[in-house]
């Protein structure tokens, strides 16, 4: 079972003089249980793409299949709720969507729309809050608007998790958080992934993608330019620079060392292997100097 995007085109304001092709011939498969990173600069079509994954947008051409169900076809119409339950989308700055009087009620909004009964809703709210390490007992009666920025965001994401989606899609989930909040947050997303949830994360940070994603795609002008494991993708330095998304900080370090004449490999992304590689290159140079 998977999310499949097949030759999808999407055009905004089709037929008018301001029409723009946001997506062009996108083919992408998100396998169950994987962590996929989507990168690209502003306006490359990332947000448009993820809105297709639960039928908020319908492709102008091409097909989107959620576990085999085509969102274009008539039969999908009655199953829209089921679809939204399967694919949870957390938009940018999700805390701007909070609206209820208490944290508990806000998180319960999704499950309530699914028509669940009260005990089940309560259970789901508790589970969702526990996943993000939010304390149910102390927070449930608080107004979401009295919380700190990071906590507001957690509550908003809990609202999506309470739908118990199989696929969780996050659009720049760490934008606007402080460094500590970011770190915590990414760890929690990684934990969700370890527990078996499929994660699709849109990000501007190559470091985050290099660290967490198992596979990644690079979007540029509505087209997929590169696709593969972070290790494969980040070895195409020149192309990434040309697209304007850049490479992770550590890869950049290796590239600069190489430019300065140190003989290092540049296709590494993990911190420990990079450390070993630099030490190796340094000792190699010392050996050469001795001779």
């Amino acid at each position: 079972m998977s999310l499949e995007v097949k030759h999808v085109f999407y055009t905004y304001q089709e037929g008018s003089p301001t029409e723009s092709h946001a997506l062009q011939d996108i083919c992408l498969t998100v396998n169950e249980g994987e962590f996929l990173g989507i990168v690209g600069h502003t306006g490359s079509g990332k947000s448009t793409l993820i809105q297709h994954l639960n039928g908020l947008l319908k492709p102008s051409r091409g097909d989107v299949l959620v576990d085999g169900l085509n969102i274009n076809q008539k039969e999908a119409k009655g199953k829209l709720k089921e679809l939204r339950m399967k694919v949870g989308i957390v938009f940018q700055y999700p805390e701007y969507q909070l609206f209820e009087e208490t944290v508990e009620q806000d998180i319960a909004f999704g499950p309530r729309n699914l028509g669940l009964n009260d005990t089940e809703i309560r259970q789901r709210v508790q589970d969702a809050m526990a996943l993000l390490k939010l304390d149910y007992a102390s927070l449930r009666k608080q107004s979401p608007f009295d919380l700190s920025g990071g906590q507001k965001r957690k509550v908003a994401i809990a609202g999506v998790l309470a739908m118990q989606p199989k696929y969780l899609v996050l659009d720049e989930p760490t934008a606007g958080l402080d460094p500590k909040g970011r770190e915590e947050f990414l760890e929690e997303i990684a934990t969700l992934h370890r527990k078996g949830m499929t994660i699709v994360m849109v990000s501007h940070s190559m470091d985050d993608v290099a660290r967490y994603a198992q596979r990644m795609v690079v979007l540029d002008h509505g087209q997929i330019r590169l696709q593969g494991t972070p290790r494969e993708v980040f070895s195409n330095h020149a192309e990434l620079e040309a697209i304007g998304v850049g490479v992770p900080t550590l890869t950049k370090l290796l590239l600069e060392l190489k430019a300065k004449g140190l003989n290092v490999r540049t296709d590494l992304i993990e911190l420990h292997e990079i450390k070993d590689e630099i030490l190796r290159a340094l000792s190699e140079r010392e050996e050469m100097a001795k001779c």
Partner: peptide
């Protein structure tokens, strides 16, 4: 439009 989409993603109709 943004908020509508976000709430629709949570099953709002």
């Amino acid at each position: 439009e943004k908020i509508m989409q976000a709430q629709a993603a949570r099953g709002a109709d």
